[in-house]
Amino acid sequence: MTQIHTHQPDDHDSAYEGLLVDDAHWAFGSGQEFEHSEDPLAGVDTTVPDGVDPTTLATYCLMLGDDALVMSHRLAELTSRAPDLEEDIAIANIALDLLGQARLLLTRAAAADPEIVPGSREARPTGPGPSVPAEDALAFFRGDQGFRNVRLVEVPNGDFGETIARLVLFSTYRLALFERLTASRDQVLASIAAKGVKELAYHRDFAGRWFLTLAQGTDESRRRVLDGLAGLLPLWPELFDSHQVEAELAAAGIGVDPSGLAAEVEVVLDQVLAVAGVTRPQTAPLAGVRRLKGRDGMHTEALSKLLAEMQVVAREHPTGRW
């Protein structure tokens, strides 16, 4: 009987063959070549400036870092869910920029005061393994009350209109904050801020343009972006509360007191609203719990749910390496 051949075996039979030849052309290698030195501040002088309490500086870095980390996670949740591919990529890019800022700030926090890093005192069964970098230990092994982000960034995602409204609020605030932070006596914070300013200016323009487009689009797009804004505005005043840590570091020439930002930030927001033909919805601020808010580690339950998802893999495999 004649044997039927449909294919001669050749070099292309295994899809995995090409993976094994040359590591160098893979952006992340095969993972076998070097121990990755992932410290995003490798070689940077992280000496704490004179006259500053290291724990206070570390806490301040957590505040700014957690804002970026939690906002980044909320944006990353939208990957593959944006209205179109371009906006999907845009939102993912903004999330990536903020994740980068979070990495630098959490690493700076740990360098200022290693004691704040979970697992630094004793290895607990649920704590990070010894090979876990400080930034990861801080991101994945702190409970909700250890997070110092403002509550604006943690509330669950709504629709695209809500996402744009939140990005307008957050990037306007953070850009103004970072512009002032470039003058920090702490060289590390000043450098992180100088880099962040360029990124945040781009985010704010993106969000502002979409706000305009939606507000002046159809009745439905206008209704959605205004609903999003009205739902978020109760969390807006919290951004300008002055926490003791912020006030102390502002006085020391290291940080920025957010209460001093309000006037400047409101002007920009009013500009966006005016061009969009929107009257600002009147809303009452969301109170804290016994006056404690996000900067004190007092959050809405949404943060616990976010963290449960964000942290589960690291906590299930505390000694895992990847």
Binding site: A27, E33, H36, S37, Q101
Partner: peptide, 19 residues
């Protein structure tokens, strides 16, 4: 120096330079 703060290529650059 990173191009963007979150640039994921930094680790690869570091490894390539070392190698």
């Amino acid at each position: 120096t990173p191009t963007y703060t979150g640039c994921p290529a930094m680790a690869a650059m570091r490894d390539d330079l070392s190698r």
